[in-house]
Design a protein around this nucleic acid. Structure first.
Lengths: 207, 207
DNA sequence: CGGATCGTTGATCAACTTCAACGGTCGTGG
DNA sequence: CCACGACCGTTGAAGTTGATCAACGATCCG
């Protein structure tokens, strides 16, 4: 198995534009260009190198982020210090500790870049002002929350319904390119199993 | 252990009013009374006796519901016919297969009354018209989705972080009165374990 | 080059399931 | 109102799934 990354990493100047976000918004809600620029005008391009932490639990999440290029994981430590990965986010995903961001409470999650990652970020104040000023932004975030809700439902059901092996097979089917980008221990922590057991499953599946 | 229900079941005429819903909305968004009545005007009171199904998977969810009195469970059958309970809903909860309701796709979920249950229901058309006519309804549902999203995150993390025994303890702490209202096999299917194993946990915990 | 981390393997152990059996309770039809 | 059948919760034995611990080579990165 070759673990070489196949996606070319574009240069910063290539990707610190807002085209990807504009496409993403237009895909979900009809919106005049004037309102689009109100949104993109409040976005700030940021870069995080691989392994950097964007957020530690107990901090206050001051921003949420839209990924232009790269990959991050959102995780927690449980009561005996074991990491559990809630989600991976990659290109065209919004991520952040929304609960902390919206309610202004200490974050429950840690967020870490798994690759060199370029994002567009929105601050709490800009978020609230966009909600007040741009009705399409209300609809847009409403749809984002809704979709996140649906995918969480599916994740809960997979946890209830399937064995670790089946969950891994489904993970591969849903995210065929992710295993080439992130380490197995993170996949294991996403699936809710140990790295050792994932290793065994891989051996078994290969045949 | 006494399984008698302690809550008095009010008569239909008592509860087919909209006070509970009005309180629920006012708790989440500021809204003038005129707009409130636009919402409540589109609600229809319905009654489902214990064990009745409100929705079967593959059907189309034509309504979502707000519980005035009673309790329902939302569940699926997995690939070998085992039931898994996604959620219980009781007084002051909205429930329904939102994915089916909003996207007009076949439902993934089954929904069944676990007690005689009184609800207020909204149809798809009324839902959409409320979104178009009442800005507070957009905010209200946006907050509902958001909160559901947060509670789903917590549920995913509990599934990843805790053993069955700890999940059961947490379930008891979060819903102390629910075990008196619903059967253990449903709790087991919510926790993702077999009724036999839950029975063992209960024996162990009692000491 | 060197240290830390990663993926793998194997042995042992804990968590949870499966299957079968039994008494109790509930709802239903007579 | 009773009798019956169906379902429920419980128990125990045996089996499966997945965790833990320790060890080892490979790889990455400084």
């Amino acid at each position: 198995m070759i673990w070489r990354r196949t996606d070319p990493v574009r240069s910063i100047s290539d990707i610190s534009n807002v085209e990807a976000l504009i496409r993403h918004i237009k895909n979900l809600v009809p919106i005049p260009d004037g309102h689009l620029s109100l949104i993109t005008g409040r976005c700030r391009a940021q870069y995080f190198p691989k392994k950097a932490h964007l957020l530690h639990q107990e901090e206050f999440a001051k921003q949420v982020h839209f990924i232009l290029q790269g990959c991050v994981r959102t995780y927690v430590f449980d009561y005996n210090g074991v990491e559990h990965t809630l989600s991976f986010s990659m290109e065209d995903y919004w991520f952040g500790d929304l609960q902390s961001f919206i309610r202004n409470t200490p974050a429950s999650f840690n967020i870490q870049a798994l690759e060199d990652t370029h994002v567009l970020s929105i601050s709490q104040r800009d978020w609230e002002e966009l909600l007040a000023e741009v009705p399409e932004f209300v609809s847009y975030t409403r749809i984002l929350f809704r979709n996140t809700m649906f995918s969480h439902e599916n994740r809960i059901l997979q946890g209830l319904s399937y064995t670790a092996e089946e969950r891994y097979r489904r993970f591969l089917a849903a995210y065929p390119t992710l295993p080439q980008r992130i380490s197995q221990k993170h996949i294991a922590s996403y699936l809710g199993i140990t790295p050792e057991f994932l290793s065994m499953l891989r051996k078994k599946i290969k045949g």
